[in-house]
Write a protein that binds this DNA or RNA. Structure first.
Length: 591
DNA sequence: GAGTTTGAAACT
DNA sequence: CAGTTTCAAACTC
């Protein structure tokens, strides 16, 4: 029979293995005639009643908690074993004793042992009448156990009919090799374990095949996902699903009876994340999934779950929803692998840290750096030619810059830039309104357009330099060579700085992610104050930006400038006013 | 407890 | 793969 076949269970399950041993055939054979009852090991599932399985082969990830008493299938595969029932206990309640049943005595506890209040309850007993308990319709069969104490009629799911049963198992596996495998898979995120206990909902696990509910809104036990106490996932093809994170209906359902279930924890976590990130951060769609027909909105995605999923993600909360839609890069994650079933709407952790003005500031810094580099190089050239050093502070800075760590460099640069602005604004002869020579450029432009660098270099040059560049025809060749080197150096410095900024952003993003992650776990119990990541927490020491620590968790700076410039926030006001990026394009000085 | 509803499983 | 039928659990009254 295949019990074994196909399934991995056997392997995992020692006991099972023996029966399955793989083979298929073994079942009967191996089946010790009555293993106490263990049934097919095929599942790997916990045995419900019977015997066995010392341990579950598969870690079932999904602990089910809750209510679910679910149907055998799910239960079996999932819930049962899983957390809820300690193998030993539950099912085993009546272990051996069961009389296998042709008759189905009702003595045996069914597989689905529910454990509430810590008290294992009796497992369900099937009531099959037409399937002989040899099809998956039968929860016992589906769970891989013999019927025992059930109310079924004409049952063949027992030792006495092992042969028939084996055949049935084989047939079933033939149709679907995964028939006896757990239907619920946990998500990659392993955070759930800590919360399983208290009736938290397992939102991270998901149904392998997904449900296909049409009328239950996936909020009734008809729905396998709901029954397994998990949220519907992208695997589902249900309609009008309300079993998703943030669903009001779902919340209402759990509210009261499961006040502290996972749903709330998750929500709180979301809230925490949102708070940490900003109002436009994560949003859980309070609105229920749309019906497939509604998907007009989403286009032809439909059928597959994608559409469906989109529906699920819809922000129900008008506020959040709008925030979501308005904020640029909102990634809907949720799909499986990663976010998995958890349908959080993902938004960059840096979303609220990086403001448009910050980008502008970054551009300013880069431009300033570019200028300084150009200036320095030019001065050097001049020095070379004249033999005199200009002893420019800028030069010193730049020189030092190359030696110091990037962060310090950035910081210094920023400061220097600011200073320079105050003291001797480069190219700002005409005052604030005129486009400074240091035309703001997008990082991308700075990084990618070498030609632009030339322009900047040229424009950044002082009149003197220009003069020297352009007027001294005799030294043009030599000068040209130097210029090339200067460009290269200039580009190197600018790109280096930009790279440093990006690296810092990445670092902070990671820090924030970690922090949010922790927050989400602890949020419910002891909400942390999101404000902890305020600007005040970012400090710069020794030119190096220090990551503030709060509650043991590194705090990313709340404000971008600190990351970009590595300088004090005060630098903002010192920075030259820079027109919006797009506007500059045409204003760049022509060399 | 009978009847209805529902959706997975099985079948075509 | 889609549509239909079968089946048994979940649900309603």
């Amino acid at each position: 029979m295949g019990e074994g076949e196909g399934r991995e269970f056997p392997a995992k399950n020692a006991v099972a293995a023996q029966s399955d041993a793989h083979g298929n055939a073994t079942v009967a054979a191996d089946f010790p005639a009555k293993k106490p009852a263990r049934q097919l090991d095929f599942t790997g599932v916990p045995s419900r009643g019977s015997v066995v399985l010392p341990e579950y082969p598969q870690p079932r990830e999904v602990p089910q908690q809750e209510p679910v008493a679910a149907s055998a299938q799910i239960q079996t595969h999932t819930q049962t074993p899983v957390g809820a029932m300690p193998v030993g206990t539950s099912h085993t309640q009546n272990p051996s004793a069961r009389s296998l049943k042709p008759e189905s005595p009702k003595s045996r506890p069914r597989p689905s042992v529910e454990v509430k209040d810590g008290t294992p309850k009796k497992q369900k007993q099937c009531n099959c009448k037409h399937s002989r308990c040899l099809k998956l319709y039968c929860e016992c069969f589906a769970s891989g156990i013999y019927c025992d104490g059930c109310n079924c009629v004409n049952c063949y799911n027992n030792v006495e009919n092992e042969a028939a049963r084996r055949e049935a198992v084989e047939a079933t596996l033939e149709r679907n090799p995964n028939a006896f495998r757990p239907k619920i898979a946990s998500s990659p995120h392993g955070t759930r374990d800590n919360r399983e206990e208290a009736g938290e909902i397992l939102v991270l696990a998901k149904h392998n095949k997904g449900c296909h509910c049409k009328k239950s809104g996936c909020l009734k036990k008809y729905c396998e996902c709901f029954q397994a106490n998990i949220l519907c996932s992208e695997n589902c093809k249900c309609m009008d699903c309300k079993n998703f994170e943030g669903s009001e209906e779902r919340q209402a359902l759990f509210h009261g009876e499961h006040a502290n279930n996972m749903a709330y924890i998750q929500q709180a976590a979301n809230a925490a994340i949102t708070g940490a990130i900003g109002s436009s951060g994560y949003a859980s769609p309070p609105v229920s999934k749309k019906r497939k027909g509604q998907e007009l909105l989403f286009g032809p995605i439909a059928k597959d779950s994608s559409l469906h999923r989109l529906g699920q993600f819809q922000p129900a909360n008008p506020v959040m929803g709008s925030a979501l839609s308005s904020s640029a890069p909102v990634v809907r994650a949720g799909s499986s692998a990663t976010l998995g079933p958890s349908k959080f709407t993902y938004r960059s952790l840096l979303a609220d840290i990086i403001q448009p003005q910050d980008v502008r500031e970054l551009c300013s810094v880069l431009v300033v750096v570019s200028e300084e580099t150009a200036k320095t190089l030019t001065d050097k050239g001049t020095e070379d030619q004249t033999g005199t050093s200009l002893a420019s502070p800028t030069l010193e800075r730049l020189q030092g810059q190359k030696e110091s760590d990037p962060q310090k460099r950035v910081s210094d640069d920023c400061l220097s830039a600011n200073q320079e602005d105050k003291v001797a604004p480069v190219n700002s002869s005409s005052g604030g309104t005129e486009l400074p020579m240091r035309r703001p450029m997008s990082p991308g432009t700075l990084a990618l357009m070498c030609d632009e660098q030339d322009t900047i270099f040229m424009s950044a040059s002082s009149p003197n330099r220009i003069t020297s560049h352009g007027c001294n025809t005799t030294s043009q060749l030599h000068h040209g060579q130097r210029m090339n080197e200067a460009y290269a150096e200039q580009e190197r410095v600018v790109l280096t700085k930009f790279r440093d900024c990006l690296n810092r952003l990445i670092t902070f993003g990671e820090i924030k992610e970690t922090r949010c992650s922790k927050l989400s776990r602890t949020e419910i119990g002891s909400p942390q104050d999101p404000s902890s990541n305020g600007p005040a927490n970012a400090r710069i020491e020794n030119g190096k930006q220090q990551v503030p620590v709060s509650n043991g968790v590194a705090q990313p700076p709340a404000k971008m400038p600190q990351m970009i410039t590595g300088a004090v926030s005060a630098s903002n006001k010192d920075l030259p006013k820079i027109p919006a990026l797009p506007e500059n394009t045409d204003n760049r000085p022509k060399a």
